[in-house]
């Protein structure tokens, strides 16, 4: 950090300046009528609405519902997807047998499952979780299997020549060497999960921050609608940053912190 402080600050300053200028341009454009007031609130009124949302218990409750379904869905997808991925990666016959099916199921646009789960579970958190698990499991499964298959043969031969037990070679060799891929899979899944959590609320009227936004929109409340979009964006940034942190911490041992094939 101490070696190149000036350049780092310069970059951050220019980034912050751009955001300030963009916000100012928004304010100016909507005040001068370049952005029509009927569809575009001013920046100041949007952020005013945002601040007042932050002061409401209703908002935090909705956010809590969204994030709860996100966490539960992602956790289930990981708990099911990682072991299954290890199995598929290890057993070549299973890998080849399931490839076409997984390929097809994972390319079904995940939002199109919403009408089905909506009918089966109603507009509930349960429905959201099922949807998220469905959408999030594929990247985790596929990446894990890929990571296992990419394990260096030399490592496995070493394990065998030292007669490591099967469980230990999974624990000490397969999982660590597939870890970069698994984490990339979970990271992709986290973003998809958030998209699906919001989608199920916007499209399926499940309770949560997305539904609040639709309510604001259908009530014609411009500024709160935009404020919700900004907030959802901030949640997205937070998820993104959190997973970056997580992966750099978990993979600190990894020489290149390499990315995966995705």
């Amino acid at each position: 950090m101490a070696t190149r402080p000036l350049r780092g600050y310069g970059r951050k300053a220019s980034g912050a300046l751009t955001i300030v200028v963009a916000l100012a341009a928004w304010e100016l454009a909507s005040r001068t009528g370049v952005l029509p007031g009927s569809v575009f609130p001013t920046m100041s009124s949007t952020f005013g609405a945002l601040v007042s949302l932050l002061g409401q218990g209703k908002f935090w409750q909705a956010l809590g519902l969204t994030m709860t379904s996100w966490v539960i869905g992602l956790a289930i997808a990981a708990f099911v997807g990682i072991p299954l991925g290890l199995l598929l990666g290890r057993v070549g016959f299973l890998y080849r047998s399931t490839r076409l099916l997984i390929d097809f199921l994972s390319t079904i646009p995940s939002v199109s499952v919403i009408p089905v789960v909506l009918l089966l579970f109603g507009a509930t958190t349960q429905m959201k979780v099922v949807l998220i698990v469905y959408g999030a499991i594929w990247p985790i499964l596929v990446q894990t299997a890929y990571g296992v298959r990419d394990t260096d043969r030399v490592l496995l031969d070493t394990a065998r020549s030292y007669s490591l037990t099967r469980l230990r070679s999974i624990r000490y060799i397969l999982v660590p060497s597939a870890l970069p891929y698994i984490i990339t899979g979970v990271r992709i899944a986290a973003v998809i999960s958030l998209l699906l959590a919001v989608s199920s609320e916007v499209l399926g009227s499940a309770p949560g921050i997305g539904m609040e936004m639709v309510l604001a929109q259908s009530g014609g409340a411009l500024a709160p609608t935009y404020a919700y979009v900004v907030l959802i964006g901030l949640v997205g940034v937070a998820v993104y940053l959190a997973f970056n942190q997580l992966s750099s911490r978990l993979l600190s041992w990894h020489p290149s912190e390499r990315g995966a094939a995705a």
Binding site: M213, L222, Y228
Partner: peptide
Amino acid sequence: SAFQPLLEFMRAIPGVALLPIALFL
């Protein structure tokens, strides 16, 4: 480097969350 933070924020917004705004627009 000037646009990066703004772009990172914009792309973190799930596309579906913009449906209400797109309806307005």
